[in-house]
Design a protein around this nucleic acid. Structure first.
Length: 614
RNA sequence: GCCACCUUAGCUCAGUUGGCUAGAGCACCACUUUCGUAAAGUGGGGGUCCGGGGUUCGAAUCCCCGAGGUGGCUCCA
């Protein structure tokens, strides 16, 4: 398995060389950066000076690549001493390679292991000196390269150039910008076709497209990018999601609070966020006072002030505040994207104030809520335990950290979560568990999170009086089940392709009238009234269109249940519900009485049962 | 922010090497029809061709500036 994978990556890597060779043939002055194999394919960073490659050039590049592949050039490895290699880079006018080699020489490490530029400069002194570095040659193209490669260019699999994008040399925006040419490659034509199909499917499911088609949200130039406006249908979904989250929390002893969306700057100076978040804060100017105000980018500092309002006893703990609220972050424009990256972030936030001893129980409760929630969504997840590493910049007592990290891992084990530990991913104020959710297309997203915080209780001087009368400092836990509602919706829309389960569907039942006779219209209206009493979302389509067309409209709108009413239904009082095609679990009989039908749908919505197959 | 590409009706898109009052389908409105499980018929309204400037006898089309959007700037020779 792994061996096969290594072989595949070697093949992709070889294609990167083939592409670079092709580019060098077409643009002889090309300077090359790095060109690795990546997930699904390969890329190469190229500096062509003033010349810009566009997608129109792809056929030309691909044709040249095919020529090189057709010649079945062997991939020959050779070794050169470092100084000789540097001389080669100078002579070949490859300044980026020269820089890598110089770094390599300076850092002084072994050739086999450490040609990885990301590690250059961080390697401990005293390791073996670099003696030789590795090159690969195919045809007239020679490149500094550790390998591995497949034996010859004729052995590569089917590939396709995908796009060209800007990329900074070594990922640093202060460095020169290069052109990154991306391609995908697989072992077989079928796999390549499959991959391209997957991309098509992802495009079809794009939440920005579905959001418009299903009338869920809009973005207005006048309001601003990254500031989505939710339509009535989209708002129903938001409310349903947040209602679900709040229900879980209320059952777990969380109490709802409410805070304003702005605050004086000093609050964040105290919390430590001012330095940390600086340029991401929206500033608010008061015309009445000289205080500097800001739009809240998070809610914890506000919540600490509710806790801090009066003396607390150990008997009160844990205190659990929850609030579904909006926070604002001034994200860079290029990072905004539909609902998945926004500037107004709705979040089902909560903060727990508790003793060190209570951490385990609280973490367990939160993880159980997360598990319950995502099983309703039918989404698998992995837990990433984000711990500290040895670097500076983490606040709080290392002993507390150690203890807390051990507790977190114990919780993950006890709940039998699929988890992995990532050192260096912790927040500066404490370790955390991030939930990585996998969607129907196999993509991973970070949604829920729970984080431990030693720092803010200290900074805000939070205390409680313990049983022995001594003053102690509580620990704070941050948690979100959905995370950003916008982000979650973007993931969930794409996960379900817009085919929402009944409890979330903006419109649960559509009634289609066969004609516009008064008896039919009255009957439909009566149905609507009864549905309203049951809290169901039912719309009547009484437009003067053919039944076929109205069915189609309901189908396109992805309404779970559609019923057609005419003389037959009026006479019998029974309906034959039309069930959205993806809802395969048929719990509803073919024919049933109206009241029975409405009650069935009502129960389905209430229990949040999942009947769709994704 | 930077690079590439894109922007024509509410939506999806045509629009040739610059050349008549800028088109289609869907949606919308009106009328006809009163219809039984994925699109009835006829007619109508709807455009600052993203904005600004330039080239030209003439610009949706070519050039420059700006705005908005999409992909990328994470995977490490």
């Amino acid at each position: 398995m792994t061996e096969q994978n290594d072989q595949l990556q070697a093949m992709r890597h070889t294609l990167a060389h083939v592409m670079a060779a092709a580019v060098q043939h077409l643009w002889p002055g090309a300077k090359f950066g790095v060109g690795p194999a990546v997930v699904d394919g390969f890329y190469y960073d190229i500096d062509l000076g003033e010349t810009k490659i566009s997608e129109e050039d792809f056929p030309k590049i691909e044709a040249e690549m095919r020529k090189i592949i057709g010649e079945n050039q062997p991939m020959q490895q050779s070794m050169k001493p470092v100084d000789e290699a540097i001389a080669w880079a100078q002579q070949a006018r490859q300044p980026y390679k020269e820089e890598l080699l110089n770094d390599l020489k300076r850092s002084g490490t072994t050739a086999a292991k450490d040609l990885d530029p990301s590690e250059l400069g961080t390697i401990a002194e005293g390791e073996a000196q670099v003696s030789e570095v590795s090159f690969y040659t195919n045809g007239d193209f020679t490149d500094l390269c550790r390998g591995p490669h497949i034996e010859s260019t004729g052995k590569v699999g089917p590939f396709k150039l995908m796009r060209v994008a800007g990329a900074y040399w070594r990922g640093n925006e202060k460095n020169a910008q290069m052109q990154r040419l991306y391609g995908v490659a697989f072992n077989t034509e079928a796999e390549l076709a499959n991959h391209l199909e997957m991309l098509e499917e992802a495009k079809k499911r794009d939440h920005r497209k579905l959001g418009q088609e299903l009338d869920l949200f809009v973005i207005s130039d006048l309001v601003g990018s990254g500031l989505p406006l939710f339509t009535p249908r989209g708002t129903i979904m938001r409310d349903a999601l947040l209602g679900f989250s709040e229900e879980l929390q209320r059952n777990a002893g969380y109490e709802k609070v409410f805070i304003p969306h702005i605050t004086k700057q000093v609050l964040y100076e105290r919390s430590g966020h001012w330095d940390k978040f600086g340029d991401e804060l929206f500033l608010v100017k008061s015309q009445e006072t000289s205080d500097q105000f800001v739009l809240k980018p998070m809610n914890c500092p506000h919540h600490t002030q509710i806790y801090a309002a009066r003396p607390r006893s150990y008997k009160e703990l844990p205190i659990r505040y929850m609030e579904s609220t909006v926070q604002y972050r001034d994200e860079k424009k290029g990072e905004l994207n539909g609902l998945s990256r926004v500037r107004s972030i709705s979040i089902d936030d909560a903060h727990v104030f508790c003793t060190l001893e209570q951490i385990e129980a609280e973490f367990t409760t939160i993880m159980s809520m997360i598990r319950d929630m995502y099983s309703v969504f039918d989404m698998k997840f992995k837990a990433r335990l984000s711990f500290r590493d040895d670097s500076e910049g983490y606040l709080g007592d290392p002993k507390d950290w150690e203890k807390a990290q051990a507790t977190i891992e114990a919780v993950a084990k006890e709940l039998e979560l699929e988890y992995f530990i990532e050192e260096g991913e912790a927040a500066f104020y404490g370790p955390k568990i991030d939930i990585m959710v996998t969607d129907a297309l196999g993509r991973e997203w970070q949604c829920a999170t729970e984080q431990l915080d030693f720092v803010q209780p200290a900074r805000f001087g939070l205390t409680y009086t313990d049983a022995d009368g001594s003053e102690k400092q509580p620990v704070m836990i941050h948690k979100a089940l959905l995370g950003s509602v916008e982000r979650f919706l973007s993931v969930y829309i794409e996960h379900t392709a817009g085919r929402f389960p009944v409890w979330l569907a903006p419109e649960q039942i559509r009634v289609i009238t066969v004609n516009q006779e008064k008896a039919t219209t009255d009957f439909a209206d009566k149905l609507g009234m009864r549905a309203k009493e049951l809290g169901l979302r039912l719309n009547v389509d009484n437009s003067n269109e053919s039944v076929g067309k109205k069915i189609r409209a309901a189908e396109v709108a992805k309404v779970p249940y559609t019923i057609v009413v005419g003389e037959k239904e009026i006479a019998s009082g029974e309906v034959v519900p039309r069930i959205r095609s993806d809802m395969t679990v048929m719990e509803i009989p073919m024919t049933l009485g109206l009241e029975e039908f409405l009650k069935t749908v009502h129960n389905e919505a209430k229990s949040r049962v999942l009947k769709t197959s994704l």
